[in-house]
């Protein structure tokens, strides 16, 4: 608490996912000095487990991780949260950079880097993130957090694949609107990898996972689907 009863803004919390101990130590030291709260994970599964229990404001993700490749971690991570993700990597090929952005990275920093540059980029992404509106859609006993990419049904977390989440997000973002399968595929995909004819199977799986809230995903004959809560 600051003098005069003003609450101090909480420190942004950064999740560092880095298996190299020397680099991780350097990052932790610098970020602490810069005033951030930190969580450290040395593997992908550890990082995903941290995200389940702690609210994170930004992720620094190394791509060359043991157990699970960083790009795979990125894909899973994007299915859960929409916080900024900065990829830090020694894999500097353009293909790695493009793939990272395709999977939802917000920035790509090639190793080796100087801390001051990384810090500037972290601050820029946190500023952008702080000015965005928080999008939460609720119906029946379901809840979709479009920013955190998190879904709940009956109070419990629902595990959707990244594609399933993107399809659901595209529907709930356009309530009451009939959307064709092809359009839905386009809306749900940045890269065109979702095909219109696969939408039916994605929606079927989403319905199964949503339970009571599934009826809001209505089939529109000869067109596609509509998100309608009847309200």
């Amino acid at each position: 608490m600051l003098p005069g009863g003003v609450m101090e803004a909480p420190q942004p919390r950064i999740l560092v996912v880095e298996d190299d101990t020397a680099v991780a130590a350097g990052l932790v030291q610098g970020l602490k000095r810069a005033g951030f709260a930190l969580e450290l994970a040395t593997t992908g599964p550890q990082a995903l487990s941290v995200l389940k229990t702690v609210t994170i404001d930004l992720v620094l993700l190394d791509l060359s991780l043991p157990e699970q490749d960083g790009l795979d971690v990125l894909e899973h991570l994007r299915a859960r949260v929409s916080v900024p993700v900065i990829v830090l990597t020694a894999r500097t090929a353009l293909s790695e950079r493009l793939k990272s952005f395709e999977l939802g990275a917000n920035d790509f920093v090639a190793k080796p880097f100087w801390f001051e540059e990384l810090l500037a980029r972290i601050r820029a992404h946190l500023r952008i993130s702080a000015t965005r509106e928080h999008h939460l859609v609720k119906w029946a006993d379901c809840e979709v957090d479009l920013d955190a990419r998190r879904v709940k049904a009956g109070g419990a977390d629902v595990e959707l694949t990244p594609t399933e989440f993107s399809v659901l997000a595209a529907l709930v973002a356009h309530p009451g609107t009939a959307i064709s399968r092809d359009r839905l595929a386009k809306l749900a995909s940045n890269t065109g990898e979702i095909l219109g004819r696969t939408i039916d199977s994605h929606v079927a799986r989403i319905r199964k996972k949503l339970g009571n809230g599934a009826s809001a995903l209505q089939t529109v004959k000869a067109v596609g689907y509509r998100f309608d809560t009847g309200g």
Partner: peptide, 10 residues
């Protein structure tokens, strides 16, 4: 690249 990163951070 990785040891250089560590050196630069240090």
């Amino acid at each position: 690249r990785t040891p250089l990163t560590s050196l630069q951070l240090t």
